[in-house]
Design a protein around this nucleic acid. Structure first.
Lengths: 168, 168
DNA sequence: CACATATAATTAGCCGCCATACTATATGGC
DNA sequence: GCCATATAGTATGGCGGCTAATTATATGTG
């Protein structure tokens, strides 16, 4: 695997300094590089539709909610702040994929719905995205996948443990 | 492992729709979630020193170059654009960790060096960072680490293959 | 030497994330 | 009903990534 350039530079230096556990550093950088590569690949897939990952997530959530959703519900489900949702919705509205409608029972609130165009793009993109993501681990056997999932879980567990133990 | 909120929402919906290969989707989200968690953990470690990951990388590279480095060299090694380096250096300069000096032989160019404060912070942070990163995979056995590395490499290989095969 | 081209560092604008503040509105207790 | 508090969506500014443009400088060719 080719590590992202910054990780190559850092790793090269870690080796030069003969830091302990260079292999652990390398493993970390492998994980991060792979994640970056996946993100980059995903972005390339979404860009022709004028979508970013953030916009894609909102599109997906809205497609699943026939009655529309309020921005704060979108924020909750997407795991970002309301402020961020405003910007993402601005982009989607600019592309005529969504429309903002007033809420009848709460003058502060909005309902966000997909336009017809939005629904069409959604259908197209989800199909494409689904096929792409299904192929990501396509060269791993079922046992290998299980193995990978278990190992990732184990690392995440360690991360959670060290994080909660941090005296901050 | 607890997936990032947006992935939980997407996965929930993928399950609801009975998409094929939900396990593959889940595996992808596990990888991305772990990477995000590592990034977040790293950011928490660096923040008390007024450093972000980007700044840390530059600090590290500069610490390794006793004669200083030019911004374009930093950009190359860090794998970002010169424009991005300018912003990062601005931040580091603001914190008095670096100084910009004119290059005697090329009026367009600069030399970037660590200040004394910069060297001290660097020493402290690298020590801390090294211990942190060494502990990341601390709960994996040596064979498990090897396994994880191999699996990550394999996925990355697949990603590279599908990417170069893309007719763009 | 003149000039076309390339390069260095920075600026400006876009994007997506955050936190904070703001304006308008809703809620609940007294 | 009044008022303190909370909430909805947005604006603003910071940050770090990008691209393209800019100004100053360097290079190479004829």
């Amino acid at each position: 695997m080719e590590l992202a350039q910054k990780y190559q530079a850092l790793l090269h230096e870690a080796q030069r300094r003969q830091l302990p556990d260079v292999a652990g550093i390398r493993l970390c950088f492998q994980t991060l590089s792979l994640a970056s590569a996946i993100d980059r690949d995903c972005a390339a897939l979404l860009a022709p539709h004028s979508l970013s990952e953030g916009r894609f997530v909102l599109l997906f959530l809205l497609d699943a909610a026939s009655e529309g959703l309020a921005p704060n519900a979108l924020a909750e489900q997407a795991g970002v702040t309301r402020a961020t949702v405003t910007g993402l919705l601005d982009g989607l509205e600019r592309e005529a994929l969504i429309e903002r409608q007033a809420d009848a029972s709460d003058r502060r609130a909005l309902h966000i719905r997909l336009t017809l165009k939005g629904k069409q793009v959604a259908k197209q993109v989800f199909d494409q995205h689904g096929r792409w993501i299904a192929g990501l681990f396509g060269n791993l056997s079922a046992p290998e996948r299980q193995q990978l999932a278990t190992l990732l879980d184990k690392v995440a567990l360690n991360l959670d443990a060290t994080q909660s133990g941090r005296p901050e």
